[in-house]
Design a protein around this nucleic acid. Structure first.
Lengths: 108, 108
DNA sequence: TCAACGTTTCAAGTATTATTGAAATAATGG
DNA sequence: CCATTATTTCAATAATACTTGAAACGTTGA
């Protein structure tokens, strides 16, 4: 994951609706959810949910797969992990205070 | 760290110059660096560096301390860790693929 | 094929953010 | 106190992003 990919991913998550979408999709795991279900869950019109989902997909943070009339969106956990790994390893030089937050759940 | 703080922090880092500033300040550790030195390091005019530094400071990611004619900026490692911890714990539900990136350096 | 459903695209308006250079502020040494 | 240095603020412009509703698209079942 290079710098510009990380910037895209950070920008994609720096928005209330999209952060909520990610949280919701995480709870759905590999089942994923359709755009309509997602829009309802985060209280957004379908066009708005679609817009934000395509932003997340462009940033690589979610995947889309058509299933009949629905399009199922899922979190791309590797991409989320890659972004976080970049922040920890490349950007923060594995600084102790940063690593502690990952190794001790609830610390930060 | 609550949702809106995390969104501010993510937005602050979702910009090339500011991400570079963070990386540079990480290498400086507790010594920190002045706005002029930072601007030179990231190839930005002083007014631009100042603007981005205040954005980072507003998001809590850096601290500012006047030392004689200079103002020394330092990374707030706790804030960076807090943001990352939020993503891992609250947002991603400690999903294995995400955690792996923190525990195995170089994995992602 | 046609109607219905879920989803995406589009256009217009609004808002936020980035950039630049100039002016203003703050602190120090002479 | 004044000149110098470091930094911030300001104003104007440009670019990017958000929201909304309507229209268009693709898929399915009748």
């Amino acid at each position: 994951m290079d710098e510009s990919q990380v910037i895209d991913a950070l920008g994609a998550l720096a928005q209330e609706t999209r952060l909520r979408i990610l949280r919701f999709l995480v709870t759905k795991g590999s089942d994923g959810a359709s755009a309509g279900e997602i829009g309802e869950a985060v209280d957004a019109a379908s066009s708005r949910a679609s817009f934000h989902l395509s932003t997340l997909a462009n940033a690589g943070l979610v995947t889309a797969e058509r299933k009949s009339r629905h399009i199922i969106y899922r979190v791309n956990f590797d991409a989320v992990g890659g972004m976080i790994g970049y922040l920890i390893n490349d950007c923060c030089g594995n600084h102790q205070a940063v690593i502690a937050c990952c190794q001790i759940p609830g610390k930060c």
